[in-house]
Amino acid sequence: MKYVTISKAAEQSGYSEKAIRRKIEDGVWTQNRQWRKAPDGRILIDLQGVETWAEGQLEPSNRSGRRSASSSRSAGAAA
């Protein structure tokens, strides 16, 4: 399955649910690349998008302005 819930993504990725939510909130993972909102409003994680991000093939977006890409990476390592 391409899309999974945050809890399933946490099981498969090793990131905590909190870390995943933080990546979404901070704009490290972007909508329609690493996650999307289902018609019922639930957030679903695109495992292929996360894999592409992890391989460094896409630069993280910093739309929120809360963190730079380099500080997000160092903070993500601690999560």
Rank of each mutant, 00 (worst) to 15 (best):
R42M: 06
Y3G: 00
A77K: 15
V28R: 06
S71G: 00
A9F: 01
E59H: 04
S70R: 06
W29I: 03
R21A: 04
Q31P: 00
R33K: 14
S7V: 09
R33L: 05
T5Y: 03
A77Q: 15
T30F: 00
I45M: 08
K8C: 10
P60I: 15
A78K: 15
Q31C: 11
D26G: 05
S64W: 05
S70Q: 06
A75G: 07
Q31D: 08
T30G: 00
S13V: 00
A78S: 13
R73L: 10
E25M: 02
Y15F: 15
K8V: 15
G14Y: 06
A38P: 02
R22P: 00
R63Q: 06
L44Q: 11
V50H: 06
R33Y: 02
G49M: 02
L47M: 15
L44H: 04
I43E: 08
K23E: 07
R36G: 01
G14C: 04
D40C: 12
E55Q: 13
I6M: 08
T30Q: 05
Q34E: 15
Q57R: 14
P39I: 08
K2D: 12
T52R: 13
I45H: 01
Q34M: 05
E55D: 09
P60R: 15
R33V: 11
Q57C: 00
R66H: 04
Y3L: 10
D46L: 05
L47Q: 14
P39M: 07
N32A: 12
M1H: 14
V4P: 02
E59Q: 11
E11L: 09
A10L: 03
K2P: 10
D26Q: 06
Q12D: 02
E11N: 11
W53E: 12
V28Y: 05
S7R: 13
Q31K: 13
R67L: 10
K8L: 14
E11Y: 09
A38D: 14
S72E: 14
P39L: 07
Q31S: 07
N62D: 09
K2Q: 13
E25N: 09
V4I: 12
Q57W: 12
V50K: 06
Y15M: 14
R21Y: 04
S61T: 07
G49E: 05
R66A: 08
D40V: 10
A79S: 13
I6N: 07
P39V: 11
N32I: 13
S64Q: 02
Q48S: 08
S7L: 08
Q57S: 03
R66N: 08
W29G: 01
W53I: 07
A38R: 13
D46V: 02
S68Q: 03
A69K: 10
N62H: 03
I24K: 04
S7N: 12
R63H: 10
E51T: 11
T5Q: 02
G27W: 03
A54K: 15
K8P: 00
E17R: 15
D26R: 03
G56C: 04
W53D: 13
Q34G: 13
G56V: 01
S74G: 03
G49N: 09
A9G: 00
A54V: 10
S74P: 01
G76D: 11
R66L: 08
M1V: 14
E55I: 08
R33T: 11
A75V: 10
